[in-house]
Nucleic acid binder design. Structure first.
Lengths: 242, 242
DNA sequence: GAGTGGTCTAGACCACCGT
DNA sequence: CGGTGGTCTAGACCACTCA
């Protein structure tokens, strides 16, 4: 007889929202251990199975990482598995190469209409722009230009990126408390202009991939706009369809 | 005290294997309704919850499709959701365009070393080669060359593909009983040669995407090797990283 | 209203990890 | 050894679909 509200949401999804909120508030930082399922169950006043289902979904979305016998951890980019989820470039040969990030420039600017739109800012808001190279086996393969919201990344410097042995996203996590959750990429083929030709050591006019990425953090908030130019003479962008 | 075998597999995974086997044997065809969770539970002598967990995983892998109140169905490519999982090309404008497949050629050949290797055949084994165009808004955007194992696709003809209003993969399902489960794609940038330039109505030398796909059916068996040439003047390859 | 998948609970036991 | 996540069960009830 009693009618549920039209926007029915099962209990485990409400629990999921609560855990998500705690993550967003920084109650547990990336890489940290969160309370056990039983603890969370008593905290939220539900059964362990309900907490389990909430965590299951969040683990499937790569927000949490379960480790049997140890506990559940906040996912982090400081982990090879997460790293290759966001860098889809692999050598044609199949060999395993380590990537090295070479920061070139880092400066402040005011957002143009396009950057403002993508990042959810107003035109003229402060942004930070980074240019960097990605090298495989000491050869340049990717030239990135990265646009970041100025309010969050005001303190970012070239030195910071040079000193960091880790990936950029790991740096963003540890220094700025921003964790990238997901991203969309739009890929097109372009011809190398003079700048890209020099950076990537290819002839002008060489076909290259243009990979435009928008990255989102908790709450689907866009926090990075990036255009990567990929040389695909000896590498390719690998994707899984499933 | 009793020690499990070193290759421990939980009950629900064994159930999953049984259901997978039934799918592979064609007990239920793509699009068909499979028995209810309770029926499967009694059939396999386990609880409903165990069957549920097996089906959960298979639904997550896009092998099955759950529909509340109706039942669980064998996934099929005859479904827009599945269709766009395998065609990642979208218009830059964001408008929704319907794709149209235009078969050009279809002939028999013997597998060269590369095709044989990819498709798990012996060199010289029979294969079927298809060339076709994909048009968006009546303009050619993709030129595909498709290599198929001859033993399975011997009966494939150009007429068959012309008559089929559905997608190629839907045709493969209904006429050949082959369902594509997953695929890998390797993307590179190339310059248009004369053939591609004519097919796609672009100037010779225009940068294009080369998308090489290997598609797998049940049991991770490769059953399609495809090279697509994508024109990205007005479209782009869109990918989700998560 | 009957049947389906979806949620929630409670309890038992197992596999894994650190100490 | 104790604590964690992982599995399995049984049962109750809810939401959805279709005849």
């Amino acid at each position: 007889m009693s009618r549920q509200s039209p926007t029915y949401s099962p209990l485990y999804r409400q629990i999921k929202s609560l855990i998500l909120g705690a993550l967003q508030d920084g109650e547990w930082r990336p890489g940290e251990l969160i309370p056990s399922e039983m603890e969370l169950a008593t905290r939220f006043g539900v059964s362990q199975g309900t907490v389990r289902k909430a965590i299951d979904e969040m683990a499937a979305e790569n927000l949490l990482l379960r480790r049997q016998g140890r506990g559940t951890f906040v996912a982090t980019h400081n982990d090879p598995r997460a790293f290759f989820r966001f860098l889809r470039l692999v050598p044609l040969s199949g060999a395993i190469e380590s990537a090295k990030s070479v920061p070139l420039e880092c400066w402040r600017a005011k957002a143009g209409p396009e950057a403002a739109h993508v990042l959810g800012l107003k035109g003229g808001d402060a942004i930070v722009i980074v240019r960097r190279l990605l090298e495989f086996a000491d050869k340049p393969v990717v030239a990135d230009e990265i646009y970041l919201p100025g309010d969050i990344f005001a303190a970012l410097t070239l030195e910071m990126m040079r000193d960091a042995s880790e990936s950029l996203y790991t740096l963003f996590e540890s220094r700025f408390g921003v964790r990238m959750i997901r991203a969309t990429e739009r890929i097109r083929a372009i011809a190398a202009d003079r700048t890209n030709a020099e950076l990537l050591h290819v002839a002008e006019g060489t076909p290259l991939l243009s990979v435009e990425r928008i990255s989102y953090t908790y709450g689907d908030k866009p926090v990075e706009w990036r255009r990567g130019i990929y040389a695909t003479q000896e590498h390719c962008y690998q994707n899984e369809l499933c």
